[in-house]
Nucleic acid binder design. Structure first.
Lengths: 217, 217
DNA sequence: GTCTATAGTGAGATAGAC
DNA sequence: GTCTATCTCACTATAGAC
């Protein structure tokens, strides 16, 4: 718990507005002039807080991933049945994505865009990638454990990881298209809890090992 | 079946290289100089084929979506049980995505990026959006029909649409991250058929209405 | 720590010769 | 249909006053 007693520093303000802009339009789609104006500063002032646009981007990305990683870290370690641990992990991910609309879009960009837009990547990028790798590894471990223990069907853990990440991250990133499909806001309380329930149920039923005879044509 | 007898026109060549570049780096991340060089032309020559960068982008996007839409259109209409129609639809989508690595990335961008980078959107954009809407509507209809007929659980069709799109499109768009998770290439024959089998099985088990007593805590 | 001024580069787009 | 030359504008980044 940090103490939010002093007014937010310019640095934090810049990160906040940059996060919103990068999430919406990506690294190349955002100009520093725009960031500066939204932060209420002159363009040149940004360079007293960040060495370059690339460093600002990586710092924003790292901040978002760490926020998510800290939320998910305890989920995999709880002393619970593996099905329950998976459901809590999924729930934690969805809560983290639902908290701020910027998170899913920035995360999706980090997942599918190759960061070749920065010639010499700042050190923050490596830290962000490590955080991302830990999150994915944790999910994969839960799935592997569930398959080995017989709690889940004999699914491929990597492919299931891919499906789960895609289903959860894309949903909250889908913006206009997603709102068109739902016929309403993505981040409203009912839409969030509904997606949470639907996705968890989909994987509970989809992964469950069945005792009875199963049609596996 | 079109007759590929004449050598590809400059126009087609431009579209091909632009598709690859836009898929990789997005609208804002690609310069027309780069497109022109890759197509073996001068930068100014592009403007004899396309009015603007925005029009080129929309035309490329429309081409990709129509290619996918034509593949999927017959899937929903086959006179088959709804479970089978859904599996064929998913299979068709995955085949379409696996055919060219550019498709999933361009589609993902169209799904989650708001196209506010073009001030006055070219007419091609509207056509692309219509194609996209038809594909999604078709999937949603299959799901609704399955729920109404009792073949599927009482899932929310919109949320399931979102999950299915995310799981399939993200997977093939995930590039380096996805290859890290799989530990090998995304578009290899075995990886493609494995993901196809895994995703179809996940939704078959995940959506199936169960006859026996079910734990729905 | 924020500003003005500006360097230096590259973008999208146009004009007009060939 | 492709080219060279050029326009205009925005960009990242720096220098240096306050």
């Amino acid at each position: 718990m940090s103490i939010p007693v002093s007014s937010p520093s310019s640095r934090d303000k810049i990160c906040d507005v940059a996060e919103a802009l990068f999430a919406r339009r990506g690294f190349a789609g955002v100009g520093l002039r725009e960031v500066a104006e939204a932060a209420g500063l002159g363009k040149s002032s940004l360079f007293h807080h960040f060495r370059s646009k690339a460093q600002l981007y990586c710092e924003v990305l790292d901040r978002v991933l760490r926020r998510l990683g800290e939320r998910l870290a305890p989920m995999g370690r709880a002393p619970l049945p593996v099905e329950e641990r998976l459901e809590r992990w999924i729930g934690g991910l969805l809560d983290g994505l639902a908290e701020q609309p910027t998170t899913s879009r920035l995360l999706l960009r980090a997942l599918f865009e190759e960061e070749d837009f920065l010639q010499e990547p700042p050190p923050e990028l490596a830290r962000a990638e490590r955080t991302l790798g830990e999150m994915i590894g944790q999910l994969q471990s839960i799935l592997e454990e569930g398959v080995e223990s017989g709690a889940f069907r004999a699914v491929s853990a990597p492919h299931t990881v891919q499906s789960l990440i895609g289903a959860s991250v894309y949903h909250f990133a889908s913006a206009e298209v997603g709102e068109g499909v739902l016929g309403g806001p993505l981040f409203g309380a009912e839409a969030v809890s509904r997606h949470r329930a639907e996705l968890i149920a989909l994987f509970r039923h989809g992964l469950a090992a069945r005792p009875g005879p199963v049609d596996d044509r």
